[in-house]
Design a protein around this nucleic acid. Structure first.
Lengths: 202, 202
DNA sequence: CTTGAAACCGACCGAATGTTCGGTTAGTAA
DNA sequence: TTACTAACCGAACATTCGGTCGGTTTCAAG
């Protein structure tokens, strides 16, 4: 325990940023100003670096975006592959995916936020949109089966239901800031209750 | 009725675009590629015009954005000024604002969509964000009073409730396209039911 | 025809964009 | 000290950006 103690693993060469810390700062700025609204000069300023130094860590602006989007999507798909999302009644599986999505959203907030704003201008963005649509299809299928199994109200179109439901969940990214007065589990409980039980007190 | 018949009002000068038709096309492109991701060259191509011709109709890119955002915000505030939004039990007022918001969202879809994506990079955007926050406060206040009056479930924080509720409503802009199989009133009914009654069938 | 009004174009401008390149600096290990 | 590794910088790059300018084209009305 001489090389990697509690002080952190001493790396070789000149100390400073690595590609992970560059990514973290970049994603934060992307979310503040929008991806297209952020210049490499903006990133350099936020990092306390020159523009050219960024290219030592990453191949360019697009790589920063791609790595962020992949991280968000990997976390979301991980939820759909958990056991409670694959067995049992569809409503219960749906509830598990909904709760899991809220938790992922909070845990990977900057990356999920970026994902939810992708427009499809480049190939990197279009690939992310493709994966996101696959996730949406997974959820829509659960709602459909929930209706079939008699647990979900059949008077609203399943496709509409799943979109409104996850629209609500995804909207959390627009305002939630960790460290505020709302905790993760409070968020999970609120969203789940509103989704499954509704607003009016019973 | 010789100058403005059913064929439409014959205008003076060379026919072509006016500032309204330029705005409509511009907002469509803004929503496809994002405001920052759209160049004046992109707009010119979509309009079938040269770049410089656009400046005959509007003062610049920002005016297009401002006019679109104002239109969306004016329509939303109009709902809060209607009589059913100002008198009676808070839950009912809330339901009226929710239904009205969905209708505005559909009627002014491109403009509301643009509004919901504003980041605050320019003064035009910051002004829009200020007005939007005022709308959100109006809604949050209704939820708070709904709890006070005993009609809204008190086990979820009112601020959280209003955000999730209108997060759901606003998310409609992300996918809804008029002319599809989902009609406006179906949308209003679906959102209202999900919000007030919840997902599980009772 | 002429006149007036509105729409439009090509050429251009200064500034900002993402990226490259050759060289430098600050640290670890032998 | 020397060798090595990684982080970093300044200057320049081709391109694109939003916007300007002076002049031209297309219509209705007189």
């Amino acid at each position: 325990m001489s090389s990697s103690a509690a002080t952190g693993p001493r790396r070789l060469g000149r100390p400073g940023h690595d590609s992970a810390s560059v990514l973290a700062v970049a994603v934060r700025v992307f979310n503040e100003r929008g991806y297209d609204g952020t210049s490499m000069e903006d990133l350099a300023r936020a990092l306390g670096l020159s523009k050219s130094a960024i290219y030592h860590h990453v191949s360019g602006k697009q790589e920063l975006l791609r790595r962020s989007l992949d991280r968000a999507l990997d976390a979301l798909f991980a939820v759909t592959e958990e056991e409670p999302a694959r067995t049992g009644p569809a409503v219960d599986r749906l509830e598990h995916v909904l709760r899991g999505s809220v938790r992922v959203l909070v845990a990977e907030l900057p990356h999920v936020t970026l994902l939810l704003r992708v427009r499809g201008n480049t190939e990197v963005e279009r690939e992310a949109l493709r994966r996101r649509r696959a996730f949406d299809r997974f959820v829509a299928e659960l709602v459909r089966r929930g209706v079939e199994e008699g647990d979900v109200r059949p008077d609203i179109d399943p496709a509409l239901t799943s979109r409104l439901l996850f629209g609500m969940v995804n909207s959390i990214a627009e305002w939630y800031r960790p460290g505020g007065r709302t905790g993760t589990e409070q968020l999970v409980a609120g969203a789940t209750t509103l989704a499954f039980a509704g607003l009016r007190r019973g």
